[in-house]
C-alpha cells in the first residue's frame, strides 16, 4: 500500500477530486452537453497508476454524495475508468498520441459498461445528472425499449466526453514541469524523452 500512496500521491488525490468536481461544474456553467467530471481521475491514473486513480474516482462521488446521494452509485463508473486508464498509463500509454486515443476508447467502453446498467437498473432510466434524462425520455416516446434508450442517450453524452477528458490529461502531463513530474510514481517515464 505504501508503495502506491506516497505523500505526493496522497496530496495529488484531493486536487484531482477537486478538478473532477470543478470540471463538472464548469461544463454545466458553459452549458456543454458533457459531464467532464473525470479529468482528475485520469490525471491520477497517468501520474500514479490504477489504484490511486480508482481511489480518486471513488472518493469524488462519495464527496458529491454528501450533498446529493444519487451520485454515490456512479462511483463504480469512476473506479472502472480509473482502473482502465491507470493500467494503460503503467504501460506507457500517455506517452504517445495514438496510445492515448486507444486509452480514451478503453475508458469510454468502461464508462458505458458501468453507467448504463446503473442508470437503468438502479434509477429506472434517469441519470443522476439530469441532462441525459431528457434524451432518454425522448427515445422512449419514439417507442424504443428502456435499455436501448438509456444506451443511446449515454452514447451521445459519453463519447465526446471521455475522449476530451483523456486528451486534456495527455496535454497536461506534457506541460507539467519535469522537476514536479519526477516526484510521482509514473513521472520518470514521461521525463525520459
Amino acid at each position: 500500500m505504501k508503495k502506491h500512496f506516497t505523500t505526493m500521491v496522497l496530496i495529488l488525490i484531493p486536487i484531482a477530486i477537486a478538478v473532477n468536481v470543478i470540471g463538472g461544474q464548469l461544463a454545466s456553467i458553459l452549458k456543454l452537453p458533457m459531464y467532464l467530471d473525470m479529468i482528475g481521475t485520469i490525471l491520477v491514473a497517468a501520474l500514479a497508476g490504477p489504484i490511486p486513480a480508482m481511489v480518486a474516482g471513488g472518493v469524488t462521488n462519495l464527496i458529491l454524495g454528501i450533498t446529493s446521494p444519487t451520485w454515490i452509485p456512479y462511483a463504480i463508473v469512476q473506479i472502472a475508468c480509473g482502473a482502465v486508464a491507470g493500467y494503460a498509463a503503467q504501460k506507457g500509454a500517455f506517452k504517445s498520441f495514438k496510445w492515448t486515443a486507444l486509452t480514451a476508447l478503453g475508458v469510454w467502453a468502461a464508462a458505458l459498461l458501468t453507467a448504463v446498467p446503473i442508470t437503468t437498473i438502479l434509477f429506472g432510466g434517469i441519470a443522476g445528472g439530469g441532462g441525459g434524462s431528457v434524451i432518454t425520455a425522448f427515445f422512449l416516446t419514439t417507442g424504443q425499449g428502456l435499455w436501448q434508450s438509456v444506451t443511446t442517450s449515454a452514447l451521445i453524452t459519453e463519447t465526446l466526453d471521455k475522449f476530451i477528458s483523456t486528451f486534456i490529461v495527455f496535454f497536461i502531463v506534457k506541460s507539467i514541469p519535469v522537476s514536479t513530474l519526477v516526484k510521482f510514481p509514473l513521472g520518470p517515464m514521461y521525463a525520459e524523452e
Partner: peptide, 10 residues
C-alpha cells in the same frame, strides 16, 4: 486526509 483535504480543496 484525502477526504478532509478534498472537502476543503473544492
Amino acid at each position: 486526509y484525502v477526504f478532509l483535504a478534498s472537502i476543503q480543496m473544492i
